[in-house]
Design a protein around this nucleic acid. Structure first.
Lengths: 200, 200
DNA sequence: GAGCAAACTTGCAGGGCGTGCAGTTATAGC
DNA sequence: GCTATAACTGCACGCCCTGCAAGTTTGCTC
């Protein structure tokens, strides 16, 4: 008896994937605002009501992988090897998270077309940033009034956003190389900044 | 003949102020989600439909001063004196923008109570950050691939957010002093970071 | 395989936000 | 005062999202 997920679980996963796929297609075709839940439901062959048992809101369909990314980051930070700093973990995490597949490129276009979605995307990074702030605060043994974790985390998230929005990359390989260079710059920057505060 | 605004304009301003005031009171009393447009309209003695001719959305009532702040920042950056850097301008701007009046404190509580509003608040800082990015890019004569402006701007915005969220300040004077200290730290940090990149 | 409990799906009713439109009311300039 | 313009209002509508009470499917047991 393999302990694989049963029919029920597999079916749910399939339905979820279908909803995401058809929703992204419709968003790309008619725009996010121009697509209704009813249309997504019809294309996915479920009832509109069912959509909301898979996703808490229409926006959550678009940002379907954010919670998973958040969990991965939390795990990467908490399970980091002895001696590894938050910055070390993040370097690997950012590179590993960069994906240039069709769905992601499509989503990038969809979000670019809508002012509100750009704001939403930014807002959805906040939980990730909070994780980074806490982890860096631990590294630096920072007190509650110490502003350094927040500054460092903000800079890191900005770098992350910059490399993942970098849409003119000619190839995935180039994109990763470029991202690595950017991240090294940011880490140098942060080390220099922290050093400057230490010397005061 | 003084060229003051006519009755029409004064009345509009008054209505706008009333809407903001009663909305904040209701939000504080019953929470943001627990308050409907209809209730705000009734308390402000206008029709629900009229609310939407003053504010594009319910959230915009809460963040009524963001567009004004954005305009002020844009002006401060574009009209800066010869030789002043973006960082110089921002130091003054942040200090000048810190306010601890009743409405702001009330809003802070309202936002703290609601997960979604915290995300929204963060998202609404994006336009400010874009202004800062552009201004810093100009200062640094940065090319399009240069990540420094985004990092520096993100760190500055994080500092701004930190000092304006600093709600346990015993007094406005203390709060300003504390903010100044934080900002000086951030500026040292940024100078150190930029220096480190220059030396590579 | 029949039956049962749990999980999943669905339709329905409804509340809240936001918009377009047309009619009424108030203001400003002559 | 009279008129053109601006503002307010009510109405109807579409959309998102939720609670609830069915109906349907799945997994498990006998």
């Amino acid at each position: 008896m393999e302990a694989g997920p049963g029919l029920r679980e597999r079916k749910k996963q399939k339905t979820r994937d279908t909803i995401i796929r058809v929703a992204l297609e419709l968003f790309a075709e008619r725009g996010y605002e121009g697509t209704t839940i009813a249309e997504i439901a019809e294309a996915a062959e479920v009832s509109p009501r069912t959509i909301f048992s898979y996703f808490p809101s229409k926006e959550d369909i678009l940002f379907y992988d954010m919670t998973e990314t958040q969990d991965r980051l939390a795990r990467a930070l908490s399970e980091r090897p002895e001696g590894a700093t938050t910055l070390d973990v993040l370097r690997g995490f950012i590179i590993g998270t960069l994906t240039r597949d069709h769905a992601h490129r499509m989503r990038h276009c969809i979000i670019s077309d809508d002012e509100g979605l750009q704001r939403s995307k930014r807002a959805r990074f906040a939980p990730l940033e909070r994780l980074v702030v806490a982890s860096i605060a631990q590294d630096l043994q920072a007190g509650p009034d110490d502003i350094r974790p927040q500054i460092v985390a903000a800079a890191l998230m900005a770098a992350f956003a910059a490399v993942s929005d970098d849409d003119e990359a000619p190839s995935e390989a180039y994109s990763q190389e470029h991202a690595l260079a950017v991240i090294e710059d940011v880490l140098s920057f942060l080390r220099g900044g922290l050093q400057a505060l230490r010397e005061r």
